[in-house]
Design a protein around this nucleic acid. Sequence first.
DNA 1: CGCCGGTTTGAGTCCATTCAAGAGGAGTGG
DNA 2: CCACTCCTCTTGAATGGACTCAAACCGGCG
Lengths: 250, 250
Amino acid sequence: MPAKNPPVLAPLLKKLRTWWPLSDEDSEAVLALPHKLREYRPHEYIVREGDRTHQCCVMLSGYSYRHKMTGTGARQIFSIHMKGDAVDLENSLLREADHNVQTLTKVEAAMIPIADIEALAHERPHVGSAFWRATLIDGAIYREWTLNVGRRDARTRMAHMLCEFALRLEDVGLGESTDYELPMTQEQLADALGLTPVHVNRTLRALQAEGLIERTQRAVKIGGWDKLAEVGDFDPAYLHLKPDAMGMRV
Amino acid sequence: MPAKNPPVLAPLLKKLRTWWPLSDEDSEAVLALPHKLREYRPHEYIVREGDRTHQCCVMLSGYSYRHKMTGTGARQIFSIHMKGDAVDLENSLLREADHNVQTLTKVEAAMIPIADIEALAHERPHVGSAFWRATLIDGAIYREWTLNVGRRDARTRMAHMLCEFALRLEDVGLGESTDYELPMTQEQLADALGLTPVHVNRTLRALQAEGLIERTQRAVKIGGWDKLAEVGDFDPAYLHLKPDAMGMRV
DNA sequence: CGCCGGTTTGAGTCCATTCAAGAGGAGTGG
DNA sequence: CCACTCCTCTTGAATGGACTCAAACCGGCG
């Protein structure tokens, strides 16, 4: 079922172009990647640890997250994914999946056979470079996440993460950097931060009491970006956002 | 100063071949990458946060580590690197370095201009794929590190890390998996594990009291691999080692 | 209306931290 | 060869940030 609608893979292309200038031909080749549309329900697994997947899931709408569990059942979330993210390259390019990817909300996705991505990367080296770079940026985000979990206290950790989400969501055009949707339960926040749900609750409410954030239902409003960034020890350099996007903030 | 000695970049080639079969021509092209030899002293910076590097440092001997500091001066180590690792691809391919790489011991390295690596990846797509995969594996190791720091207690964390080092060192042919050199101070171990040096000391000595490890000077001897792996909740899948290497253990 | 998943709050506990002091080892200089 | 210094390791005691246990509250939904 080859692509008919030109713009379906546009979010992927946008992401790839961030760090590598692609010619019109290269761009069209990306958009022409064969794919099938697929919809996931909330809380559905996209990839499960141990799976051998042969296609890559590019997100078009909704949110998902990457996680893994310890032998005792404790869970750690590594990252949140949104529009434009290719969510299981790491799993399908290596032997077998070493972690899980699960949806947070309903997700619309384009499934691309991994073989076609590889073939395209070989035919068009610039596309290959763009994918490679996207992978490197994911790595940078993982590292910051580790620093956050390993060396910051609960309050700082939480503020930092809220700042990261703000900028990433803004970057892909979802919400303002000071007011965005965040469909995570406190338990999921806890798993992302390496805390317990109870302590997340207290931390959140402390930030709220200070007027740094406002949390209604599943949305976050930031009252005073600069202050929150300071509390969260947040420097967006590691996100490697587009130069012009960088200028807008901090 | 182009390469004359054929085998200088052999460790890099070995690593690249682990996950992608390279033809003889591709292999020779990798070995023929222009490079300069360089030596670093212990504790010297290879890359500093904020640097813009234009060459890639491939380690030939010695150890180095990747780290970043919070605004309050707390440090988190993300990974340890050894023979064959290309240590600053992430930094030189993106705009500017978002973290530091520093030597642990004396290091011999081959410095390759990043432009030559990119050119080779473009000319020879299989080489590009091999580099890409190496990056993906680094990502997998970061994720496990995060899980370790975020969701395991000190004892488990330490055991897990010692297991990881054992297998990785064995894989590159440095020491046995049950007896290896580990030139890290307890303070560095603490920064890697997200603990304090004092608590690392207590944890180490507790493991030793149980007969699980023996630590003399800067070396580790593992007394009972299976037991340590169990204590450390260690499953080597995330390292994505070669299939045949995997069979040897666990 | 009553269930159910998620949130909120309190009280007590514990793992890891902080503070502090001493011991061991390697290197330097007199 | 011995002092002296610096760095790392070791151990004890007290503290504290985050956890556990537990109960109540809330809003959405069948």
